[in-house]
Amino acid sequence: MRKLILPVLLIAIFALMPLIAELVGKNALMTLSARILMYAMAAASLNLILGYGGMVSFGHAAYFGVGAYVVGILYSHWMSEVPIFGLFPGSNQLLVTLPIAMIVSGLAALLIGALSLRTGGVQFIMITLAFAQMIFFLFVSLTAYGGEDGIIIRRANAVPGLNMRDKTTVYYVILVVAVLYFAWLWRVVNSSFGQVLKGIRQNERRMEAMGIATFRYKLYAFVLAGMGAGLAGALMANFLRFTSPDMMHWTKSGELIIMVILGGLGTFFGPILGAAAFLILEFYLADWTEHWQLGLGIILLLVVLFTKGGILGAVDRLKGGRQ
């Protein structure tokens, strides 16, 4: 039962956020809260391969951006009523665009993962970064979809029975998707596959000796992670009503890694806390000084050099639990 306290608390906070924002008259709080939810999903998907699987991917923002672009491209074709490649019609239905975003980013992850996972160590870090940069420049070159400027989405995708013009409604849709996503992720990390993945992080050679073809499992995790990031990106495109190559710039990949580390690598709730810490820090520091990244850099440096296990690790130590 105690296990349920944290998730229930988190859901309650996020569910009450629009009310709180209205109460204190600060609409920006709801925006901040929504951004935390979406970045938490992206960071959690990265945590699946980085924290549970031990794969240091430095290009995760690419899948986030691909998911966002799927929404943007489908929307622009729906608007212009010109089928994509003359074959597929566009769409503005969230229940259509989200699954397609997941499938497309999953396919991108399948291709990139199948090639990248042949290497390891620093080469893996660099090749994932390289592929992400290639996707970044690919979208910059797509002048039909705005090139560097990206795509403006006039209206958030529609959901039958909901008024998606209302920002609060969009917020709750994001919350529901996020809760579903984290519930699914909970199943994954506690599944048979999750156990194999944790084993691979600790000792790949041993897993091979147990008869596990580690490459396939790593690739599977890589694809699942790409799909998760794509889902988060698709929501982001709906929320911002905008998508651009900046969403997949390599520094965004760096930020996702920072969120995972800040919260606690390989812990379930870490990415949520990490995303919250990062974005709240940005929100208030940026309010106070334009040089907020200096503060972020210093904090990050101190966290990496002097702490182990991020926020959750610190909480554990405070409780006098395991070291």
Partner: peptide, 23 residues
């Protein structure tokens, strides 16, 4: 126990299942 359990599971199969509970 987790070490041995994973070795048994690896041989037993079903290692791609994402919706079961390993415990």
């Amino acid at each position: 126990r987790e070490n041995v359990g994973l070795a048994v599971q690896a041989r037993d199969g079903g290692n791609f299942r994402v919706f079961d509970r390993v415990t």
